[in-house]
Computed example of a mutant assay.
Amino acid sequence: MDEAEQRATPELAAREDSLYRCTTDSLTVYYSDATYTTEVGSDRCYCGRTPLRTGVMTDYAVTEYSEDCLGLAPAAP
């Protein structure tokens, strides 16, 4: 990868992240291990907004709630 590609990659990733809009109203909580006692991160979506992500995403996740947003759900293929 040349120098121009290295500079462009983070900018492209940031732009793609900012374009993502939630199609659900949901909260997912991430835990440190299989005991599900220590929260280490979360992913909060509000209809039509950019997700709010904090901490670390792990394999130990619990979706507290998730509801489709009217008019924002992706179309079926």
Rank of each mutant, 00 (worst) to 15 (best):
M1P: 12
D2Q: 06
D2G: 15
E3F: 11
E3D: 14
Q6P: 04
Q6Y: 13
T9R: 15
T9P: 00
T9Q: 15
T9N: 13
P10D: 03
L12I: 12
A13Y: 05
A14Y: 02
D17F: 12
D17L: 12
D17Q: 09
S18T: 09
R21Y: 00
R21D: 01
C22R: 00
C22A: 01
C22V: 00
C22T: 00
T23L: 00
T23E: 00
T24P: 03
T24N: 13
D25H: 10
S26Y: 02
S26N: 04
L27F: 05
T28F: 02
V29S: 06
Y30D: 07
Y31D: 03
Y31T: 06
Y31L: 11
Y31W: 08
S32G: 09
D33K: 07
D33H: 08
A34F: 13
T35G: 15
Y36V: 01
Y36C: 08
Y36I: 04
T37H: 10
T38Y: 09
G41N: 11
D43A: 09
R44H: 15
R44N: 10
C45T: 00
C45Y: 02
C45H: 00
Y46G: 11
C47I: 01
G48I: 04
G48S: 06
G48T: 04
R49N: 08
T50R: 13
T50G: 08
T50Y: 10
P51Y: 04
R53Y: 09
V56G: 08
T58W: 13
D59L: 15
D59G: 12
Y60R: 05
Y60T: 03
Y60S: 07
A61E: 09
A61Q: 08
T63A: 03
T63C: 01
T63D: 02
E64F: 05
E64C: 07
Y65T: 00
S66L: 07
S66R: 07
E67D: 11
C69F: 02
C69I: 00
L70W: 10
L70V: 11
G71N: 11
G71K: 08
A73N: 01
A73W: 05
P74A: 02
P74T: 03
P74Q: 03
